[in-house]
Simulated scan of single mutants.
Amino acid sequence: MGETSRKRRFSRSAAAALTAVVLLATGALTGCDSASDTRGNGSPAKPRPSPSPTPVWDRSPDSIAAVGDSITRGFDACVVFSDCPEVSWATGTDATVRSLALRLIGEPAVTERSWNFARSGADVADLAEQMTQAAAKRPELVTVMVGANDACADTAERMTPVEEFRSSFAAAVRQLRRSAPKAQMYVSSVPDLKRLWSTGRGNPLGRQIWKLGICASMLGNAEDGSAKAQTRRDRVHERVVAYNEVLKDVCGKDLRCRYDGGAVFEYRFEGEQLSRWDWFHPSKNGQQRLAEIAYRNVTAAKPPRA
Rank of each mutant, 00 (worst) to 15 (best):
N297W: 02
E86V: 05
V298D: 00
E266W: 05
G225P: 07
A135Y: 00
V79T: 14
A180P: 01
A20Y: 15
A17N: 11
P61T: 03
P47C: 04
D249H: 10
E86D: 14
W89T: 02
E245A: 12
E86T: 09
G2K: 14
P44I: 02
K228S: 14
V97N: 05
G92P: 04
D69M: 05
W197P: 00
S99K: 06
D94Q: 12
N149Y: 03
L247N: 05
P85H: 10
P161F: 09
G213R: 11
V22E: 11
R258A: 01
A300D: 07
D192T: 06
D249T: 03
K253T: 01
R232Q: 14
S88R: 03
P161T: 08
A101Q: 13
A306H: 01
A229M: 12
M218S: 12
A180S: 08
I64D: 00
S52Y: 01
S36R: 15
L127W: 00
A15D: 09
S34G: 09
L255N: 02
V236Q: 14
P61N: 10
S168D: 10
R103E: 08
L290Q: 02
S120P: 09
A183L: 09
S88D: 03
L290Y: 14
L176R: 01
G220R: 04
G147E: 02
K137S: 10
P204K: 03
D62S: 14
W197Y: 06
S50T: 10
A20W: 15
A172I: 01
A135T: 02
P44Y: 03
Y259D: 06
A148M: 07
F117L: 07
S70Y: 15
A128E: 13
D69S: 08
R119A: 06
F265C: 03
D234L: 05
D83Y: 15
G213V: 06
S36N: 14
R296M: 12
S36A: 15
Y295D: 12
S114G: 15
A153P: 06
E245W: 01
A122G: 02
R178V: 00
A294Y: 11
S283F: 07
A180F: 03
I214E: 04
A300K: 10
G271I: 01
V144S: 00
S99D: 08
D83M: 04
E292Q: 13
V146Y: 01
V56G: 00
P139V: 01
